[in-house]
Amino acid sequence: MKPKILISSLTGCSGCISTLLSLDIFPQFLERTKIIYFPFIMDVEEIEECDIALIEGCVSEDSQVNLLKKIRKQTKKVYSIGTCAGFGGILSLSKKRIAEPVSKYIEIDGVIPGCPPPSKLLGNCLIKLIENREIDVDIPKKNLCATCPLRGEAEENFQTKITQINPNPEEIIPVEEDTECFLKRGILCLGPITRDGCEHVCIKEGLPCEGCMGPVSKSFFSNTINFISLIHLSKKIRNYDGIFYRFSKPTFKR
């Protein structure tokens, strides 16, 4: 029996869905599954029983909570696709709207992170899911520094003065063998508190990490505090909004 799939979007940009539709394996995915609900590409009415639900976008309205509960009830496994659904995403910057991860309202079986998730990662996960195998990407194992191509050996009493959050255009340099870690150059990089998996696309282009893959551990809040305690942020940066919660809302729950 082909697994029955439901794909639904909450508040987001459809970038995750458009990534899914352009995957190499998307034709194969269609063939090996039975999509029963996917309003972006088909006419649908009611939510029926299904095996796997993929949710894009954050929760920003009451009606979405009801939809999620309905989905949870009818579905064997529910996954958050992308940083919005996984951790709140870009709307975390908003002071007016709520932007919550799906997991705040229903139990989920995993997160496929990224804004949007890298194609390879998403494709591999989907294949595993239709073969009824576990996806383990949601277990944050490493931060981005662990495999970073830049030079930045850990030093004792690592103290660095951060004065910039973006390099000036004329300072952007392509990565070479001995390019130094951004933090050492006084530029904020969120690598230490961001999960691995993006293949360092920004860093390779000469830009620091902004955290779009989401937090490296469930204790994002304390991790961030630890990180901030290790670096010295200039006053201007300290007063600037939305560096650390650009893609994830910190939870204060203990």
Partner: peptide, 25 residues
């Protein structure tokens, strides 16, 4: 979603990166 409010007082260099998240198409 209120991007016109979210973007107020953001650094100019940050704008294109945040704004692209308005639409994945």
């Amino acid at each position: 979603r209120g991007f016109e409010h979210i973007l107020k007082h953001k650094k100019l260099c940050d704008l294109p990166k945040i704004i692209s998240r308005i639409c994945g198409l």
